[in-house]
Amino acid sequence: MDVQQLRCFLAVAEELHFGRAAERLHLTPSPVSRAVRELERELGAELFVRRYHQVELTAGGTALVGRVRDILRQLDGLKEALDEASGTRVVRVGGTHLCPPAVMDRFLLVAEERFPAHQIAATMAPSAELLPALERGELDAALVHLPLDRSDLDALVVARYRFSAAMRADDPLATASELRLRDLTHRTLTVGPPSPQPLAMNRLHRRLRDAGITSFHEMPGHDAVMLASHVRLSHGLTLTLDPRNGGSARVFDDPAFAVVPLRDDLEFLLGVAWCRSRAGQDEVVRGLIQAVRQEWAAGTLTL
Results as ranks from 00 to 15, higher is better:
M1W: 13
D2L: 08
D2N: 15
Q4C: 06
Q5M: 03
R7A: 05
R7Y: 07
E15V: 00
L16A: 02
F18N: 01
A21D: 02
E23A: 11
L25F: 00
V36T: 11
E38T: 14
E38M: 08
L43S: 02
F48K: 00
F48S: 01
R50P: 01
R51S: 13
R51V: 09
T58Y: 07
T58C: 06
T58M: 04
T62V: 07
R69V: 09
D70Q: 05
D70N: 04
Q74S: 15
Q74H: 15
A81I: 08
L82T: 10
D83I: 03
S86I: 04
R89F: 04
V90P: 00
T96A: 14
H97N: 12
L98Q: 14
C99F: 13
P100V: 10
A102N: 13
R106I: 04
L109T: 13
A111L: 03
E112W: 13
E113G: 06
E113F: 05
P116G: 01
T123H: 08
M124E: 13
M124Y: 15
S127Q: 12
L131F: 04
P132F: 07
E138A: 13
L139Y: 05
A142C: 06
L143G: 05
V144M: 04
L148R: 00
L153C: 05
D154I: 01
A155Q: 00
L156E: 11
V158I: 09
R160P: 01
Y161P: 03
R162L: 09
S164F: 15
D170W: 02
D171F: 15
L173H: 03
L179A: 13
R182N: 15
D183F: 01
D183I: 02
L184R: 10
T185L: 01
T185R: 04
T185H: 02
G192R: 03
P193C: 03
P196E: 09
Q197L: 07
R203Q: 13
R206I: 07
R206C: 09
R207L: 14
A211D: 08
G212I: 02
I213H: 13
E218H: 14
E218I: 14
M219D: 12
H222M: 09
V225T: 11
M226V: 10
M226F: 09
L227Y: 07
T238F: 07
L239Y: 11
L241N: 12
P243F: 09
S248G: 08
V251Q: 01
F252M: 06
D253H: 11
V260P: 08
L262D: 12
L270F: 11
G271V: 06
A273N: 10
A273K: 10
W274L: 05
R276H: 07
R278N: 03
A279T: 11
A279E: 14
D282I: 01
D282S: 08
V285C: 01
R293S: 12
W296G: 00
L301R: 06
L303H: 06
